[in-house]
Computed example of a mutant assay.
Amino acid sequence: MKDITKKYTNGEVTIVWKPTICIHSTLCWNNNTGLPEVFNPKVRPWIKPENAITEKIVEHVKKCPSGALSFYYNDEEQKPVETTTENIVETLPNGPLMVYGNLVVKDSDGNKTHKNKVTAFCRCGASNNKPYCDGSHVKIGFKG
Rank of each mutant, 00 (worst) to 15 (best):
I4R: 13
T5C: 02
K6Y: 14
K7L: 10
K7H: 12
K7P: 02
Y8W: 11
T9E: 07
G11K: 08
V13I: 15
T14E: 09
T14I: 12
W17A: 08
T20H: 14
I21A: 04
I23E: 09
H24S: 13
N30Y: 09
N30H: 15
N31K: 15
N31D: 15
N32K: 15
L35A: 12
N40W: 08
K42E: 14
R44V: 09
P45R: 11
W46K: 06
K48R: 15
K48V: 13
E50N: 15
N51S: 14
T54H: 04
E55M: 10
E55A: 14
E55Q: 14
E55L: 11
V58S: 11
V58N: 06
H60W: 07
H60A: 08
C64T: 08
S66M: 00
A68Q: 06
F71T: 05
Y72M: 09
Y73H: 11
N74F: 05
D75W: 11
E76W: 01
E76I: 01
E77K: 14
P80H: 02
E82Q: 03
T83D: 01
T85L: 09
V89P: 00
V89G: 01
P93M: 08
N94G: 10
N94L: 07
G95F: 01
G95E: 07
P96E: 04
L97W: 02
M98N: 06
M98Q: 09
M98F: 06
M98S: 07
V99A: 01
N102A: 03
L103T: 01
K106D: 00
D107G: 02
D107I: 05
S108C: 10
S108P: 05
S108V: 12
D109P: 00
D109T: 12
N111D: 04
N111W: 00
K112L: 10
K112H: 01
T113P: 00
N116F: 01
N116D: 11
K117C: 03
V118M: 11
T119E: 03
C122Y: 01
G125D: 07
A126G: 14
N128G: 15
N129F: 10
P131N: 10
C133Y: 09
C133R: 03
C133E: 06
D134R: 07
G135W: 02
H137V: 07
V138W: 13
V138N: 13
I140M: 05
K143H: 14
G144S: 04
